[in-house]
Each structure stands twice: as structure tokens, then as C-alpha cells.
């Protein structure tokens, strides 16, 4: 997938440079881009490590566990196939908490565990049940306390306040999450009505 996008980007810029007469700039951009990529990674490193470090403290001191326990009954209402004290719900809740705190390395394995636990009690075989769909949609619209990569890029670009966008991110992200949840619920209501 990404291979095609990459191909598309390179071919489009090559073709486009003939129309705009900017072949020289594109030639220069190849070398500059390689250089910029490395600079970008280095200038992001500090802010990234700050947050992965701080969030590791949150994880080890039990904040993650507390949030996760608090979320279980709430999430169980959204994913009614799995009760609040089931193994599946424990993994689901731990994954969503890890995503919220930006513990990316922990979140993905927990999410995979959650899906495997959910699949164990899935009566639909290789078809995703509504709770599984809900879980994946919540993950794609994920809410994050500190959008780390974004803040790191803003700091690297010389922003006077890289975190000034936090309230906007929280609001936009919650609204998108609500929209995703509503869409899943609406789709399952619609299907139920159609079937009977």
C-alpha cells in the first residue's frame, strides 16, 4: 500500500515539475529531503523521549491500571458482548488507556491480545461482531492526552508554544471519537431493523 503511495508521490512530482518548470528545485529537493529527514528525527528525539519517559512513570506507578479499571464498565456498555470483568475487556481497557497515555509500544500488543480474546467468544466466525468493530473504530479515532509526535514536530519547526493546540486536539478528537461510535451504533441499529 505504502509502496504505491510512495511511487505516486515521486512520479507525480517528476511529471508536475515539467508543467511548473521547477525541475531544478525537484532535483535539489531529493538531496535536501534526505538531509531534512535525518534532521527532523534528531530534533524530534528530545520531546519524544520526554513523553515516553514520563508516561512510563505513569504506567509503573499504577496510573494506567487505575484508569483502565475505571474505564471497564464504561467500555462494556459500548461493547456489550464482553462483560466488565472478562479477560477480553481487561485487555480492551488496558489498550485504550495505553493509547490515551501515548504508550504506543504497549498499546499495540495489548490491542492484539484484546482482539484475540474477543475472537475466542465470537459467534460470527470470521466476521467481526459489533463489539469488535466498535473496538477497532475507537482505536482508529484514538483519544490521546499528549499528541507526542505532533508536539515534537511543532517544537522542531520552531513553534513558540508547541502545546498550544492541546485543547483543540482534545475537543476535535473527542468529537471525532463520538462520531465514530455513533456511526457504528447507527449501522448496527439499521442492520437489526432490516433483518427483522
Amino acid at each position: 500500500m505504502l509502496g504505491y503511495i510512495w511511487l505516486g508521490m515521486i512520479v507525480s512530482s517528476f511529471l508536475c515539475s515539467f508543467f511548473t518548470g521547477r525541475t531544478d528545485q525537484v532535483a535539489a529537493a531529493v538531496t535536501q529531503g534526505a538531509d531534512k529527514g535525518v534532521r527532523l528525527l534528531i530534533s524530534m528525539a528530545g520531546v519524544m523521549c520526554l513523553w515516553t519517559g514520563i508516561m512510563k512513570i505513569a504506567d509503573k506507578s499504577g496510573i494506567t491500571g487505575n484508569i483502565s479499571r475505571f474505564l471497564r464498565p464504561v467500555l462494556s456498555r459500548l461493547m456489550p458482548d464482553y462483560p466488565a470483568d472478562s479477560e477480553a475487556m481487561k485487555a480492551i481497557s488496558a489498550n485504550i488507556t495505553a493509547n490515551f497515555l501515548g504508550l504506543g509500544n504497549a498499546a499495540t500488543p495489548l490491542g492484539i491480545k484484546a482482539m484475540k480474546e474477543m475472537q475466542r467468544n465470537n459467534r460470527l466466525g470470521d466476521k467481526a461482531n459489533p463489539s469488535m468493530i466498535m473496538f477497532v473504530v475507537i482505536n482508529t479515532a484514538s483519544l490521546q492526552l499528549i499528541p507526542t509526535t505532533c508536539a515534537a514536530l511543532r517544537a522542531a519547526a520552531g513553534s513558540t508554544d508547541p502545546y498550544s493546540i492541546l485543547p483543540q486536539v482534545w475537543i476535535a478528537s473527542s468529537c471525532a471519537l463520538a462520531a465514530g461510535i455513533t456511526a457504528v451504533k447507527a449501522a448496527s441499529l439499521f442492520r437489526r431493523r432490516k433483518n427483522g
Binding site: A128, M132, V137
Partner: peptide, 21 residues
């Protein structure tokens, strides 16, 4: 990554709902 790891093939309304979000 999530459907691949759990062997789900039919994803229902996942992609439309996620793209709507």
C-alpha cells in the same frame, strides 16, 4: 493489524465508520 492478528475477514462497517470519524 487488529483484524489481521485475529483472523477476521469480514469487517462489516468498520472502514466506513472509521473514515467517517
Amino acid at each position: 493489524i487488529y483484524y489481521g492478528s485475529s483472523g477476521i475477514k469480514k469487517t462489516g462497517c468498520t472502514i466506513p465508520a472509521a473514515l467517517f470519524a
